[in-house]
């Protein structure tokens, strides 16, 4: 089964986030990276990442004419970083959350100067404003949005275009 350009980008992004699992390179050791299913069956955990897709916007200014034309999309991926530290933990929660978000940025960017293409699938990528997760739900954390712009052939979301 072939994958849409968007799904291929999502999988590359997830693969990069999974580099935070069971490692000693970064300060944050993530316990799991989840893409939720319809009836969500995951349970919140400390240092957990939930990857979801947000707004998908067509960008006319970046779309190209042609045969077929290419259509540009700007999609917001929400990298939701969950923190549930031990009640006895003395570290300020802001410190833990900030470090988590920083490590997410580092692992998504990596050391590749072309990280923003996500394996030649996208044309531009940037991080959005951090959105704190309200603690009254029992979970602390932050959402790190990544805005990824890509093109596909008009009428064919499976064909990537430069």
């Amino acid at each position: 089964m072939s994958l849409t350009v968007l799904e291929r980008i999502t999988r590359v992004l997830r693969t990069r986030l999974e580099l935070l699992l069971n490692q000693s390179t970064y300060n944050t050791n993530v316990c799991e990276v989840i893409r939720p299913v319809r009836l969500d069956d995951y349970t919140p955990k400390n240092l957990q990442i939930v990857l979801t897709k947000g707004v998908d916007e067509v960008i006319d200014e970046l779309s190209y004419p042609g045969n077929p034309p290419s259509v540009a999309h700007k999609v917001t991926f929400n990298i939701r970083c969950h923190v549930m530290t031990d009640e006895q933990d003395c570290d300020p929660i802001d410190y833990v959350v900030d470090m988590f978000a920083a490590d997410v940025q580092r692992v998504v960017v990596g050391t590749d100067s072309t990280w923003h293409t996500f394996g030649n699938l996208a044309v531009h990528s940037e991080f959005g404003n951090y959105e704190p997760i309200a603690a009254e739900g029992g979970i602390d954390g932050v959402n790190v949005p990544v805005l990824i712009t890509f093109r596909h052939s008009e009428g064919n979301p499976y064909e990537v275009r430069a």
């Binding site: 979801t52 929400n78 939701r80 549930m84 739900g137 954390g141």
Partner: peptide, 30 residues
């Protein structure tokens, strides 16, 4: 909080006891 998913929430009632239930001073919400 993720804004995109519907999740189940359960309310659990237990005895405040460190053997038969969960004591309030041992519970760790982390």
């Amino acid at each position: 909080e993720d804004g995109d998913n519907i999740i189940p929430i359960f309310e659990i009632h237990v005895k405040n006891d460190s053997v038969l239930g969960i004591s309030s001073d041992e519970l760790n919400l982390g």
